[in-house]
């Protein structure tokens, strides 16, 4: 009646897994889930007694397991079905694993994927649980650095004009540069004056006409 679903038939997997979770007699078979926890290398230093602080929860605490000194664990009295096994430690994060036991007592372990439950990525059984990383519960405080202060746009806006104000008069005092600047200024003045004259002459007629039109438009809007 119950059968082990072939790994290849991805589409068939949800159907037969559902059947596997149906159990005529809950006590017909009791199995044990075994595995081992591989701590991070800095475990021994920071947590001398990590075995006692680590727990195994199967289906959110429906079955529990404890970790022995060597890191191995066994969860007893589990009937056949599909279970999510989590390793709980306050300092380290572990990836949960889905363990499936069929009615004949065959085990299969795979990655937990809640979004696509049919996707099977197998992991070895007996389980090898490795700590992913140290759990970061805290936000980092922003530290005050001088570069942050200097590159702050407000500071830049203040400092740059200050530099200009302080440096430019100094440069003016230099006689050679003064001459050069005067030259440039006279040149530009001349050209600019010429251009502006031409432009003003050119625009004199239409600009006055436009000014007359504008109030009319605004009246219409009202």
């Amino acid at each position: 009646m119950l059968y082990w679903c072939p790994l290849l038939a991805l589409l068939g997997a949800p159907l037969c897994l559902c059947q596997a979770s149906f159990e005529d007699e809950p006590d017909s078979g009791r199995y044990a889930i075994e595995g081992r926890i591989f701590p991070l290398s800095d475990y021994q230093t920071s947590q001398a007694n990590w075995q006692a602080n680590t727990r195994i929860h199967v289906n959110g605490g429906e079955f529990i397991g404890f970790v022995k000194k060597d890191g191995s664990f066994t969860v007893h009295n589990v009937p056949s079905g599909s279970y999510v096994l989590e390793v709980l430690n306050p300092e380290y994060t572990f990836e949960p694993v889905r363990v499936e036991i069929n009615s004949k007592g065959k085990y299969r372990a795979r990655k937990v994927n809640y979004i696509q439950p049919t996707q099977v990525i197998q992991v070895p059984y007996p389980l090898k649980m490795k700590a992913l990383a140290k759990t970061r519960y805290f936000q980092l405080r922003e530290q005050w650095r001088i570069t942050d202060f200097i590159f702050n746009p407000m500071v830049l806006m203040m400092v740059l004009p200050l530099v200009l104000v302080m440096l430019l008069p100094k440069m003016m005092n230099d006689p050679e540069t003064k001459k050069e600047i005067d030259q440039i200024q006279s040149l530009t003045n001349f050209e600019m004056g010429d251009m502006t004259d031409k432009l003003s002459n050119f625009l004199a007629g239409p600009s006055t006409a436009q000014q007359n039109k504008k109030p009319q438009k605004s009246k219409k809007r009202q």
């Binding site: 007694n49 006692a52 970790v67």
Partner: peptide, 18 residues
């Protein structure tokens, strides 16, 4: 049936009985 390490509280042995 479980055995516990008294100073640390870690599990030493465990077996079930049904």
């Amino acid at each position: 049936v479980r055995g516990w390490d008294a100073p640390t509280g870690s599990l030493l042995w465990e077996w079930p009985l049904v």
